[in-house]
């Protein structure tokens, strides 16, 4: 059952007097109990997509068109007041840097309880559920943790607190914006396992944002690859890793070590740079960097087509990629 459905989302940000298109027609579905990975280079619009769902875009940014449906209700159409009541209770988010995601002047317990109180849960009930939420994320001695200030906790513990706070109200959708990037490898694995476990337990729809395909391979059933504000390719994880249908996905895959390798290398490196949002090319935004480009790639922007088990926004089928491409996608 589809819980989160993003339909043709367009988000812009005002910069130097003009609107830059950051998200340009993203469509995505996440089912209950499913984890969908959202990957792409830094700046491709992943966080803006997530913040559009939460309704927490920064000053100057706004959704210009599209729908964001959660259990059939369009969040974009809601008034700000109703929007607020959906945050935390219907959609929740966890963030990249657990060191800065918590208020240093409030105890952990107060910060979790605050979310409950914002949705009408008060008194002893709020306290009980705060402790339960802390316990659920596997932290020992919940009452002691609840009384601690964030600086007393380690990065992994803080991320668990952020997760506890996000899930305290049993939301339907959890958006995780690179929640393991700032953590070291063992803690990363623990957090992955925790979210995976909570997902099954609560039948959560999870959108997991990362630029790390290794993480995606481990946790996500399906993957959407973003490039310059669009979804370049969307496919089952297995299908994508076996046979990427978009040259950008192929290049991303080629730039990581084996997905079972726990040592993370440097961020994926592909020659060239993503396009300037203020001066997007007329054709496919990946065309200038693409190894398999054809003439028409420079003139028209490809719409997604279903091909080889995935939806890919590319004119050039894999079969035409030629010898050079085969070498690129060979796993290391």
């Amino acid at each position: 059952m589809t819980v989160l459905r993003i339909e043709d989302l367009h988000t812009v940000v005002r910069s130097r007097g003009r609107d830059l298109p950051v998200v340009r027609g993203v469509s995505l579905d996440v089912d209950a109990g499913e984890i969908v990975g959202l990957v792409g280079e830094s700046g491709s619009g992943k966080s803006f997509t997530a913040l559009s769902v939460l309704g927490l875009l920064p000053e100057g940014a706004r959704v210009t068109s599209g729908r964001i449906l959660v259990d059939g209700e369009d969040l974009v159409a809601l008034r700000e007041r109703d929007r607020r009541t959906r945050r935390g209770s219907t959609v929740a988010m966890i963030y990249q840097d657990p060191m800065t995601a918590l208020n240093p002047l409030m105890t952990v317990g107060a910060q979790i309880a605050e979310g409950l109180r914002a949705h009408g849960i008060r008194g002893p009930e709020a306290k009980r559920r705060t402790l339960a939420a802390i316990e659920e994320v596997g932290l020992p001695k919940p009452d002691r943790i609840a009384r601690s200030y964030p600086h007393r906790l380690s990065g992994g513990q803080r991320q668990r607190v952020v997760i506890a706070s996000a899930l305290a109200l049993r939301p339907r959708v959890l958006i995780a914006d690179e929640p393991t990037t700032a953590l070291d490898v063992t803690i990363q694995q623990q957090i992955l396992a925790l979210v995976d476990e909570l997902r099954t337990e609560h039948d959560l729809a999870v959108l997991w944002i990362t630029h790390d395909l290794g993480v995606v391979a481990r946790i996500a059933a399906r993957v959407a690859v973003m490039y310059a504000g669009r979804v370049a390719e969307q496919a089952g994880t297995r299908e994508l890793f076996a046979a990427p249908q978009h040259p950008y996905s192929a290049a991303l895959l080629a730039s990581i070590p084996s997905p079972t390798d726990t040592e993370r290398g440097p961020l994926p490196q592909i020659g060239g740079a993503p396009p300037d949002l203020a001066a997007l090319p007329a054709g496919c935004p990946f065309e200038p960097r693409c190894a398999y480009r054809e003439d028409r790639c420079a003139t028209g922007e490809p719409e997604p087509v279903h091909r080889g088990g995935s939806d890919t926004a590319c004119f050039v089928p894999r079969e035409r990629w030629g010898v050079r491409g085969d070498a690129m996608e060979e796993p290391a």
Partner: peptide, 26 residues
């Protein structure tokens, strides 16, 4: 501009409370 302000908003906390309890307090 701190991350924890976004966290607070993400929990559905009211704007007034975000302003006084989180931003002004810090």
């Amino acid at each position: 501009g701190s991350d924890f302000v976004r966290t607070a908003r993400g929990k559905g906390v009211t704007e007034a409370r975000v302003r006084f309890r989180h931003i002004l307090h810090n």
